[in-house]
């Protein structure tokens, strides 16, 4: 998102007019805060979180890594068979499976489309919310919150019902609108229309999070800034690009990283809507692959190897994203 000089010109006074008094601190760097440097206090504050996360997340993740080098299935866990060290055999089995690489590529692409669509829909509707009065705003907000609250397994089932070629109302409506090609059209048969159907559901259940968060963020932007821009005759798009988006950066970063993680790990939607990966596994994504290849048949060691690979891929994506942010002067 290169903003150009115009944006920086706008951004500077906007920042200055915010609640922080005194000389502006250079972005991100917490210089001149001597008192809080080198004390134990932050660690004291962090202690409860570190105990919980250390015990309940770091330890299982350490085990995950360990198990990925062993032969460890239910037969080892409870069947009395010896747990043996396998070196990289589990990884070799995984990388040797031709399907694995196709699944990785499909997952990355599908997740990217999901993230971009969710963010686009969420942000657009958040801006829309600022443009309407209370009643339509409440209606949209409540509908979105309902979509968010529905259990994923139910949401996916309902969407399949709606798009069912024999029993669903969507095709009937499309035909009624004159699109006769949708007569008995099966959305899940073609690879791309199946992915599209899942995409609709994913966006449906995850845009509310983005919309509500971004809407709240916009409301926190000082009114004068937006009014000044509106008086200058700037378009909605321009106001978004040059004022809102930069100010919402901290929120957008969290929202984006979370969306990347969630969408890369999409499971329920694919599993329910395409019956476990689609016709001849055409809609397979990594988490479903991991489930079928390993977890459903209790092959924990192979599953752990897949988990480690997924962790590394996601970590790489996140680090690249944060590096890009840093290059634009944004600091964590």
């Amino acid at each position: 998102m290169s903003a150009g000089t115009a944006q920086h010109a706008r951004r500077a006074p906007a920042k200055g007019s915010r609640s922080r008094p005194g000389p502006a601190v250079p972005a991100g760097r917490r210089s001149g805060k001597g008192p809080r440097r080198g004390t134990w206090t932050p660690w004291l504050y962090l202690a409860p979180a570190l105990v919980v996360l250390g015990g309940l997340l770091v330890y299982p993740i350490y085990q995950l890594g360990l198990i990925s080098f062993l032969e460890y299935t239910q037969a080892q866990v409870s069947g009395g068979e010896p747990t043996t060290f396998q070196g990289f055999a589990n990884y070799a089995e995984l990388f040797g499976d031709g399907e694995f690489w196709n699944v990785v590529v499909a997952t990355l692409l599908f997740a990217a489309v999901c993230v971009v669509s969710t963010l686009a829909v969420g942000c657009a509707l958040a801006v829309l919310l600022t443009r309407v009065r209370a009643v339509p705003r409440l209606a949209l907000m409540l509908a979105a919150l309902g979509a968010w609250a529905t259990p994923a397994i139910t949401g996916s089932t309902v969407w399949v019902f709606l798009f069912d070629p024999d029993f669903g109302p969507v095709n009937k409506v499309l035909v009624w609108l004159g699109l006769s090609g949708f007569e008995n059209y099966s959305w899940t048969y073609d690879r791309y229309s199946a992915f599209a159907l899942v995409l609709f559901e994913v966006v449906w259940c995850s845009f509310p999070f983005v919309m509500v968060t971004v809407y709240a963020g916009i409301r926190a932007i000082p009114t004068e800034v937006l009014e000044a821009a509106a008086l200058d005759g700037a378009s909605t798009w321009r106001i978004w690009r040059t004022i809102m988006a930069p100010m919402l950066r901290p929120i957008l970063v969290v929202v984006t990283i979370q969306s990347i993680i969630w969408d890369f790990k999409v499971f329920t939607q694919i599993y329910v809507m395409t019956d476990g990966g689609g016709i001849a596994r055409q809609n397979m994504v990594l988490n479903v692959y991991a489930y079928q290849k390993a977890f459903a048949s209790s092959q924990y060691s192979l599953g752990s190897a897949i988990g480690v690979v997924m962790l590394l891929i996601l970590l790489a994506v996140t680090l690249v994203y944060l590096r890009l942010l840093r290059r634009q002067g944004e600091e964590l």
Binding site: V51, V58, Y59, Y62, Q63, L70, Q76, V77, T83
Partner: peptide, 21 residues
């Protein structure tokens, strides 16, 4: 607190040398 936390973590790691059966 911090050393206690560190110890607790180390203890957890020790018991976790091999996955449970």
């Amino acid at each position: 607190t911090v050393p206690v936390v560190a110890l607790a973590l180390a203890g957890l790691a020790m018991t976790g040398c091999a996955p449970s059966t």
